[in-house]
C-alpha cells in the first residue's frame, strides 16, 4: 500500500505529517523522501545509512571525429542543451532532459550516450521505520529520475511518499502509482489557494485523496467549507499549537515530543487505510 503526503506549497507541515505517520505505522513502514531538491525527513528520522545508490541519466556524448557539424542535433534539441558555432556542438548537461532525440537524429552516428550522475538514493535504518531518501546533486535540474529511483527502492508493504512542493512534474512523478493521497493544508487563504491548485492536478490524474488541516483553529471554517463544497473528505485536524512548532524547530517528532498527539496521528493513518481497502 502506497500513500502520498502532498501539499501545494512548502511549509504546511507536510513532512512533519509524513514522518509522524511513518513512525506511528511502525517498523515495517518505509518513508520515501521525494522532495529530492531539499530532502529533510532525515532531520526527524536519524539512523545509519545502510546502502547508497547513484542515480544517473543517459545523456549524449559527441564523437568529434565523426561529427560533420550538420547541426541536426542542435536543431532537434528543444531544451537548448546543444549549441554549435559551426564545428561539433557543445553540450550543456544542466539543460538536457535525457530524451535521446539527438542521437536518433544524428545522420553521422556521431552521438553515443553516457551516464550522467544526477543524485543518490540512500536507505537509512531509522529504527522506528525505514527511510529512503532521494537527494539531487547540487546544480542538477532534473529531479524526476531521482524521484522514480527513490520510489523504486522502497520495497516494503507499507510505503509513504513525502511529496515535493509545487504542482509540476516532480509532484506528478511522486503521485503516480500511489493508492491514496493525503493533502496537508493550512486554514489560511494562502493554504486554500494552494490546495485548490493541487486538487486540480489530482483530479486530472484520477487519484483518490483526502485532506488533513494543519495548524487548525476551531473558529476557522475556510477549508471545511471548501472541502464540503467540493465533496472532499477531511481526515483529521492538527491544532494550532506552539509546542508543535517548537518541536519541529528542534527536529523532534510530534508523536514523541508530545505523546498526547499519538491518537490523532493513529486515527489519520487508519482513515487512510480504510479508504484504500474500501
Amino acid at each position: 500500500m502506497r500513500i502520498a503526503v502532498a501539499s501545494g506549497k512548502g511549509g504546511t507541515g507536510k513532512t512533519s505529517v509524513a514522518v509522524n505517520l511513518a513512525v506511528i505505522a511502525g517498523r515495517t513502514a518505509t518513508l520515501v523522501d521525494c522532495d529530492v531538491e531539499e530532502p529533510n525527513a532525515h532531520i526527524f528520522l536519524k539512523g545509519d545509512v545502510s546502502s547508497t545508490d547513484t542515480v544517473s541519466m543517459s545523456v549524449p556524448a559527441i564523437e568529434e571525429n565523426r561529427c560533420t557539424g550538420c547541426r541536426a542535433c542542435v536543431e532537434f534539441c528543444g531544451f537548448n542543451a546543444l549549441i554549435s558555432f559551426g564545428g561539433p556542438p557543445l553540450f550543456f548537461p544542466d539543460l538536457c532532459h535525457g530524451c535521446g532525440g539527438c542521437r536518433l537524429v544524428c545522420p553521422a552516428g556521431a552521438i553515443v550516450e553516457v551516464a550522467r550522475p544526477l543524485g543518490e538514493v540512500r536507505r537509512i535504518d531509522a529504527g522506528r521505520c525505514t527511510l529512503v531518501e532521494g537527494c539531487l546533486e547540487v546544480g542538477v535540474s532534473s529531479p524526476v529520475p531521482v524521484i522514480k529511483a527513490a520510489k523504486a527502492a522502497a520495497d516494503g508493504d507499507f510505503v509513504i511518499y513525502d511529496a515535493p512542493p509545487g504542482t509540476s512534474c516532480p509532484l506528478v512523478a511522486t503521485l503516480r502509482g500511489a493508492d491514496y493521497v493525503l493533502l496537508v493544508t493550512e486554514p489560511t487563504p494562502f493554504g486554500l489557494s494552494d490546495l485548490r491548485l493541487t486538487v486540480e492536478v489530482l483530479r486530472q490524474m484520477n487519484m483518490e485523496f483526502g485532506v488533513v488541516i494543519n495548524r487548525s483553529m476551531r473558529s476557522e471554517s475556510l477549508i471545511h467549507d471548501y472541502c464540503h463544497h467540493e465533496a472532499i473528505e477531511v481526515l483529521g485536524e492538527i491544532p494550532e499549537d506552539r509546542r508543535i512548532a517548537e518541536a519541529y524547530a528542534a527536529g523532534r517528532l510530534i508523536v514523541e515530543a508530545l505523546p498526547g498527539y499519538r491518537p490523532l496521528f493513529r486515527s489519520i493513518l487508519e482513515a487512510c487505510l480504510e479508504r484504500v481497502t474500501a
Partner: peptide, 15 residues
C-alpha cells in the same frame, strides 16, 4: 522566448 537556456541560444546568434 526560450523557456530555458536563453543565454546559450543567444551565444549561438552572437557567433
Amino acid at each position: 522566448d526560450a523557456a530555458m537556456g536563453a543565454g546559450l541560444k543567444a551565444a549561438e546568434s552572437i557567433v
